[in-house]
Computed example of a mutant assay.
Amino acid sequence: MNSITIEELKAKLDNGEEVNLLDVREPDEHEEFNIGGRLVPLGEIRMMALDDIEDWQNEEIVVYCRSGNRSGQASLILEQAGYSPVNLTGGMLAWQEKYAQ
């Protein structure tokens, strides 16, 4: 499974690169803090309800959650379904610790 650090992702975003962000947390977590990702909770990914990201089938997807655990699980599922996921190491906890004001 491929991974990306918060620093690498932040650099991509700061450079204006188009990044497919997939948030696999729960809606309340997403509402509390997010970096603009498309919300598809891990439970939906486990059920292979991937209609919301079908347009990303042939593109890299940065998958994130609170700490990196759920996004790791989601990345494995997506990989098996033919997607190209990249797990965000440390998740939103690491992001907020370093970048949130």
Rank of each mutant, 00 (worst) to 15 (best):
N2L: 09
K12T: 14
T89A: 04
N58V: 02
R25T: 14
Q96I: 02
V24M: 08
N2H: 12
Y64I: 01
E97H: 09
C65E: 06
G43Y: 08
R25H: 05
I77M: 04
N58E: 11
L88K: 01
S84D: 11
V86L: 04
Q101H: 07
A11W: 05
V19H: 05
K10F: 15
E31Q: 13
E79Q: 05
Q96K: 09
T5W: 12
P41S: 07
P41M: 07
R38G: 10
M47R: 10
Q101S: 11
K12V: 10
P27T: 07
P27G: 06
Y64M: 04
Q101M: 09
A100I: 04
N58F: 05
K98P: 07
S75F: 00
L93H: 09
M48G: 06
T89F: 04
M47H: 13
E97C: 00
A11C: 10
I53N: 03
E17S: 10
K98T: 15
G43E: 12
E79V: 00
Y83N: 01
G36D: 01
P85G: 05
N69R: 08
C65L: 00
N58D: 14
E79D: 12
I4G: 11
N20S: 14
E32K: 13
Q96R: 09
A100W: 13
E59P: 03
E18G: 09
N2A: 11
N58K: 00
A49E: 15
Q101C: 08
E79S: 11
S3D: 13
S67Y: 03
P85K: 00
Q73V: 14
R66G: 05
V24S: 05
I61P: 07
E7N: 15
Q96C: 06
V86F: 04
A94F: 03
I61R: 00
A49H: 14
L22K: 06
Y83L: 02
D55R: 00
C65A: 03
V40C: 06
Q57V: 08
I61L: 00
Q57Y: 08
G72W: 06
Y64L: 00
V24Q: 10
C65T: 04
G43T: 10
S84P: 01
P85Q: 01
K12Y: 13
I77E: 09
L21V: 13
L50S: 13
M48N: 14
D14P: 15
E26K: 13
E29H: 09
E29I: 06
L9C: 06
E31R: 11
D55V: 12
H30M: 01
P85C: 06
D28F: 15
R66V: 08
Y83P: 03
S67H: 07
S75Q: 00
K10Y: 14
I6L: 09
S75Y: 05
I77S: 10
N2W: 04
A74F: 10
I77F: 07
P27E: 04
W56C: 06
V62L: 02
G68I: 02
K98C: 07
I6C: 12
R38S: 10
K98M: 10
E60I: 03
